[in-house]
Protein backbone atom coordinates (compact mmCIF):
# COMPACT_ATOMS: atom_id res chain seq x y z
CA UNK A 1 0.00 0.00 0.00
CA UNK A 2 1.58 3.28 -1.05
CA UNK A 3 1.16 6.91 -0.08
CA UNK A 4 0.95 6.49 3.67
CA UNK A 5 2.14 9.18 6.06
CA UNK A 6 2.98 9.21 9.75
CA UNK A 7 -0.62 10.06 10.51
CA UNK A 8 -1.68 6.74 9.05
CA UNK A 9 0.40 4.74 11.55
CA UNK A 10 0.02 4.02 15.21
CA UNK A 11 2.94 2.44 17.10
CA UNK A 12 3.02 1.33 20.73
CA UNK A 13 6.27 0.46 22.46
CA UNK A 14 5.46 -1.74 25.43
CA UNK A 15 1.94 -0.35 25.24
CA UNK A 16 3.00 3.31 25.18
CA UNK A 17 1.92 5.26 22.11
CA UNK A 18 4.93 6.84 20.37
CA UNK A 19 5.35 9.89 18.17
CA UNK A 20 6.42 8.73 14.73
CA UNK A 21 8.19 9.89 11.64
CA UNK A 22 7.91 8.01 8.40
CA UNK A 23 11.09 7.88 6.42
CA UNK A 24 10.86 7.30 2.71
CA UNK A 25 12.46 3.90 2.33
CA UNK A 26 13.45 4.57 -1.24
CA UNK A 27 15.93 7.17 -0.01
CA UNK A 28 17.72 4.86 2.40
CA UNK A 29 20.41 2.59 0.94
CA UNK A 30 20.01 -1.12 1.46
CA UNK A 31 22.57 -3.51 2.92
CA UNK A 32 21.71 -6.86 1.36
CA UNK A 33 23.55 -9.70 3.08
CA UNK A 34 23.29 -13.05 1.36
CA UNK A 35 23.73 -16.00 3.72
CA UNK A 36 23.88 -19.03 1.47
CA UNK A 37 23.99 -22.73 2.27
CA UNK A 38 26.95 -24.39 0.56
CA UNK A 39 26.70 -27.77 2.29
CA UNK A 40 27.04 -31.00 0.36
CA UNK A 41 23.27 -31.39 0.07
CA UNK A 42 23.19 -28.35 -2.26
CA UNK A 43 25.46 -29.99 -4.81
CA UNK A 44 24.41 -29.93 -8.46
CA UNK A 45 21.44 -28.01 -9.84
CA UNK A 46 20.68 -26.42 -6.47
CA UNK A 47 24.14 -24.91 -6.31
CA UNK A 48 23.96 -23.53 -9.84
CA UNK A 49 20.51 -22.10 -9.15
CA UNK A 50 21.76 -20.57 -5.91
CA UNK A 51 24.50 -18.66 -7.71
CA UNK A 52 22.01 -17.46 -10.33
CA UNK A 53 19.61 -16.31 -7.60
CA UNK A 54 22.39 -14.42 -5.86
CA UNK A 55 23.30 -12.70 -9.10
CA UNK A 56 19.65 -11.83 -9.70
CA UNK A 57 19.53 -9.87 -6.46
CA UNK A 58 22.85 -8.14 -7.21
CA UNK A 59 21.46 -7.08 -10.59
CA UNK A 60 18.61 -5.25 -8.86
CA UNK A 61 20.63 -3.27 -6.31
CA UNK A 62 20.96 0.49 -6.77
CA UNK A 63 24.42 2.11 -6.93
CA UNK A 64 24.03 3.39 -3.38
CA UNK A 65 23.10 -0.05 -2.05
CA UNK A 66 25.66 -2.50 -0.73
CA UNK A 67 25.88 -6.28 -0.69
CA UNK A 68 27.75 -8.86 1.35
CA UNK A 69 28.13 -12.62 1.14
CA UNK A 70 28.30 -15.18 3.94
CA UNK A 71 28.41 -18.88 3.18
CA UNK A 72 27.78 -21.70 5.56
CA UNK A 73 28.37 -25.41 5.51
CA UNK A 74 29.88 -26.87 8.68
CA UNK A 75 31.78 -23.56 8.74
CA UNK A 76 30.30 -20.10 8.43
CA UNK A 77 32.50 -17.72 6.48
CA UNK A 78 31.91 -14.01 5.80
CA UNK A 79 33.27 -14.18 2.24
CA UNK A 80 32.64 -10.58 1.30
CA UNK A 81 31.96 -7.70 3.69
CA UNK A 82 29.40 -5.07 2.80
CA UNK A 83 30.49 -3.36 -0.38
CA UNK A 84 29.03 -1.42 -3.27
CA UNK A 85 31.36 -3.37 -5.56
CA UNK A 86 28.81 -5.92 -6.72
CA UNK A 87 31.26 -7.35 -9.22
CA UNK A 88 33.43 -8.49 -6.33
CA UNK A 89 30.43 -10.11 -4.64
CA UNK A 90 29.55 -11.79 -7.93
CA UNK A 91 33.07 -13.23 -8.19
CA UNK A 92 32.82 -14.48 -4.65
CA UNK A 93 29.45 -16.08 -5.40
CA UNK A 94 30.87 -17.96 -8.33
CA UNK A 95 33.75 -19.33 -6.28
CA UNK A 96 31.49 -21.11 -3.77
CA UNK A 97 31.95 -24.88 -3.47
CA UNK A 98 29.46 -27.30 -1.86
CA UNK A 99 31.05 -29.19 1.00
CA UNK A 100 30.30 -30.51 4.46
CA UNK A 101 27.31 -30.33 6.79
CA UNK A 102 24.83 -27.51 7.40
CA UNK A 103 25.07 -24.88 10.14
CA UNK A 104 22.12 -22.61 9.34
CA UNK A 105 21.98 -20.77 12.67
CA UNK A 106 25.73 -20.16 12.72
CA UNK A 107 25.53 -18.81 9.16
CA UNK A 108 22.58 -16.56 9.97
CA UNK A 109 24.40 -15.19 13.01
CA UNK A 110 27.57 -14.38 11.07
CA UNK A 111 25.47 -12.60 8.46
CA UNK A 112 23.75 -10.60 11.23
CA UNK A 113 27.02 -9.45 12.69
CA UNK A 114 28.27 -8.20 9.34
CA UNK A 115 25.62 -5.45 9.55
CA UNK A 116 26.47 -4.27 13.07
CA UNK A 117 27.30 -0.58 13.18
CA UNK A 118 26.65 -0.15 9.46
CA UNK A 119 24.61 2.76 8.10
CA UNK A 120 21.53 2.04 6.01
CA UNK A 121 18.86 -0.57 6.49
CA UNK A 122 19.90 -4.16 6.52
CA UNK A 123 18.39 -7.24 5.03
CA UNK A 124 19.75 -10.72 5.65
CA UNK A 125 18.59 -13.32 3.16
CA UNK A 126 19.21 -16.88 4.34
CA UNK A 127 18.88 -19.58 1.72
CA UNK A 128 19.13 -23.23 2.75
CA UNK A 129 17.68 -26.65 2.24
CA UNK A 130 16.74 -26.19 5.86
CA UNK A 131 18.30 -29.08 7.70
CA UNK A 132 20.45 -27.58 10.41
CA UNK A 133 22.74 -30.44 11.39
CA UNK A 134 25.74 -28.65 12.74
CA UNK A 135 25.29 -25.22 14.35
CA UNK A 136 26.97 -24.34 17.61
CA UNK A 137 24.55 -21.50 18.22
CA UNK A 138 20.99 -22.46 19.08
CA UNK A 139 17.96 -20.81 17.45
CA UNK A 140 17.19 -19.11 20.76
CA UNK A 141 20.67 -17.61 20.94
CA UNK A 142 20.50 -16.27 17.38
CA UNK A 143 17.01 -14.97 18.00
CA UNK A 144 18.14 -13.16 21.13
CA UNK A 145 20.97 -11.61 19.13
CA UNK A 146 18.72 -10.57 16.25
CA UNK A 147 16.44 -8.72 18.66
CA UNK A 148 19.36 -6.45 19.47
CA UNK A 149 19.85 -5.42 15.86
CA UNK A 150 17.81 -3.62 13.21
CA UNK A 151 18.20 -6.40 10.69
CA UNK A 152 15.23 -7.93 8.89
CA UNK A 153 15.81 -11.60 8.14
CA UNK A 154 14.14 -13.38 5.26
CA UNK A 155 14.65 -17.01 4.39
CA UNK A 156 14.22 -19.13 1.32
CA UNK A 157 14.08 -22.83 1.99
CA UNK A 158 13.20 -25.97 0.17
CA UNK A 159 12.47 -27.87 3.34
CA UNK A 160 9.18 -28.73 4.92
CA UNK A 161 8.09 -26.62 7.88
CA UNK A 162 8.96 -29.10 10.62
CA UNK A 163 12.67 -28.93 9.94
CA UNK A 164 13.23 -25.20 10.07
CA UNK A 165 11.50 -23.97 13.19
CA UNK A 166 14.57 -21.90 14.03
CA UNK A 167 14.47 -20.00 10.75
CA UNK A 168 10.76 -19.34 11.06
CA UNK A 169 11.23 -17.94 14.57
CA UNK A 170 14.11 -15.77 13.39
CA UNK A 171 12.28 -14.30 10.40
CA UNK A 172 9.10 -13.69 12.40
CA UNK A 173 11.03 -11.96 15.17
CA UNK A 174 12.73 -9.57 12.77
CA UNK A 175 9.73 -8.77 10.59
CA UNK A 176 10.71 -10.94 7.66
CA UNK A 177 9.25 -14.22 6.52
CA UNK A 178 10.10 -17.59 5.02
CA UNK A 179 9.49 -18.39 1.37
CA UNK A 180 9.31 -22.11 0.66
CA UNK A 181 10.24 -23.20 -2.83
CA UNK A 182 9.42 -26.52 -4.40
CA UNK A 183 12.24 -26.41 -6.90
CA UNK A 184 15.58 -24.67 -7.17
CA UNK A 185 14.31 -23.02 -10.37
CA UNK A 186 12.14 -20.82 -8.11
CA UNK A 187 15.11 -19.45 -6.16
CA UNK A 188 15.83 -16.43 -8.35
CA UNK A 189 12.24 -15.19 -8.34
CA UNK A 190 12.05 -15.73 -4.56
CA UNK A 191 15.20 -13.66 -4.05
CA UNK A 192 13.86 -10.87 -6.25
CA UNK A 193 10.53 -10.87 -4.46
CA UNK A 194 12.29 -10.48 -1.12
CA UNK A 195 14.35 -7.51 -2.31
CA UNK A 196 11.24 -5.86 -3.71
CA UNK A 197 9.31 -6.48 -0.50
CA UNK A 198 12.12 -5.05 1.59
CA UNK A 199 12.60 -1.98 -0.58
CA UNK A 200 8.91 -1.15 -0.40
CA UNK A 201 8.65 -1.30 3.37
CA UNK A 202 7.84 1.81 5.34
CA UNK A 203 10.46 2.89 7.82
CA UNK A 204 9.02 4.19 11.06
CA UNK A 205 11.38 6.23 13.21
CA UNK A 206 10.80 7.32 16.80
CA UNK A 207 12.62 8.15 20.00
CA UNK A 208 11.22 5.83 22.66
CA UNK A 209 9.50 7.81 25.35
CA UNK A 210 7.77 6.67 28.49
CA UNK A 211 9.51 3.29 28.47
CA UNK A 212 12.63 1.82 30.10
CA UNK A 213 15.48 1.69 27.58
CA UNK A 214 16.72 -1.83 28.30
CA UNK A 215 14.93 -5.16 28.23
CA UNK A 216 12.52 -6.44 25.64
CA UNK A 217 10.22 -3.94 23.96
CA UNK A 218 7.03 -5.33 22.48
CA UNK A 219 5.96 -3.37 19.42
CA UNK A 220 2.42 -3.04 18.21
CA UNK A 221 2.04 -1.35 14.82
CA UNK A 222 -1.31 -0.53 13.27
CA UNK A 223 -2.42 1.29 10.12
CA UNK A 224 -5.44 3.51 10.21
CA UNK A 225 -6.63 2.43 6.77
CA UNK A 226 -9.26 -0.15 6.01
CA UNK A 227 -7.99 -3.41 4.50
CA UNK A 228 -4.34 -2.92 5.46
CA UNK A 229 -2.33 -5.79 6.88
CA UNK A 230 0.82 -4.93 8.79
CA UNK A 231 3.98 -7.02 8.77
CA UNK A 232 6.49 -5.60 11.25
CA UNK A 233 8.97 -6.87 13.77
CA UNK A 234 7.13 -7.73 16.97
CA UNK A 235 9.77 -6.21 19.22
CA UNK A 236 13.37 -5.53 20.04
CA UNK A 237 15.71 -5.80 23.00
CA UNK A 238 17.12 -2.56 24.29
CA UNK A 239 20.85 -2.61 24.84
CA UNK A 240 22.24 -2.06 28.32
CA UNK A 241 23.94 1.24 28.97
CA UNK A 242 27.71 1.01 28.45
Amino acid sequence: MGGLTAADFELRDNGVLQRLEVVDGADVPINAVLALDTSVSTTGKRHTALIAAGEAILDRLKPTDRAALTTFSHAAVPRMPLTSDTAAVRTSLRSMNPLGETAVMDGAFVALTSTLGQPGRSLVLVCTDGYDTWSWLTPDEVLESARRTNVVVYAVTSSDARRDDGLTMLTDATGGHVIRVKSSTELASAFQKILEDFRNRYLLAYNPSGVQPDGFHRLDVRVRRAGATVRARPGYTGLPAR
Binding site: A75, A76, V77, P78, P81, F109, V110, T113, S114, L116, G117, E144, S145, R148, T149, L239, P240, A241, R242
Partner: peptide
Amino acid sequence: LLAGDMPSARAATSRLSD
Protein backbone atom coordinates in the same frame (compact mmCIF):
# COMPACT_ATOMS: atom_id res chain seq x y z
CA LEU B 1 26.56 -8.64 21.28
CA LEU B 2 24.39 -9.39 24.31
CA ALA B 3 26.65 -7.14 26.34
CA GLY B 4 26.17 -4.34 23.80
CA ASP B 5 29.78 -4.51 22.66
CA MET B 6 29.08 -4.43 18.93
CA PRO B 7 32.69 -3.82 17.76
CA SER B 8 33.87 -6.96 19.57
CA ALA B 9 30.90 -8.94 18.30
CA ARG B 10 31.74 -7.99 14.74
CA ALA B 11 35.48 -8.42 15.15
CA ALA B 12 35.08 -12.01 16.35
CA THR B 13 33.08 -13.19 13.35
CA SER B 14 35.27 -11.26 10.92
CA ARG B 15 38.07 -13.65 11.93
CA LEU B 16 36.20 -16.51 10.29
CA SER B 17 37.74 -17.54 7.00
CA ASP B 18 38.74 -20.58 4.95
